[in-house]
Amino acid sequence: MVWAFWLVAAIIIVSALGVVGFANLIHSALALAATFLAVAILYLFLAAEFVAAMQVLIYIGAVAVLIVFGIMVINRSGMQLSNPSGKTVLGAFVVAIVTMAVLLLGILNHNWPVTQQNPPDDTIAVMADLVFNRFLIPFEIAGLLLLVSVIGAILLAREVRQR
């Protein structure tokens, strides 16, 4: 199974590089969808089927599709038009490499606790218990966050129409 993990990891890295590298925005969006799908497979490796399914439904089914719609509406296919600050590639590259080095330093130099337990058979029940009991408050706050986002989207969109 280890080779499967490395294969998926490689797909994630290559497709994520594609997201920032492609000159055409639509290609970037498709690469993003591929990244999301590969991350969903990672969740399957962790025996988190429900999270994997949600990842596919929400991130590919909604987020990626929404991004493609957004690109269609804005109608600017080239990176140069949509991202004027995209010229500082070298600086961004250096910052990204340094950040990655620092994170790797932290991850590789720690004796991480590993659980010996088998994952539960019914992950949905465990998750439901966590979300609706112990972590009910953040769950409800997330609901309010969505409400505010909807209000904000309506407000700002109406503003544009009236202009």
Binding site: P138, I141, L145, V148, S149, L155
Partner: peptide
């Protein structure tokens, strides 16, 4: 940490609008 993070995001999105 979860409540903290969701609360901070809730605050940030509201302030953005």
């Amino acid at each position: 940490l979860l409540t903290l993070y969701v609360g901070l995001e809730f605050l940030a999105i509201t302030l953005v609008v």
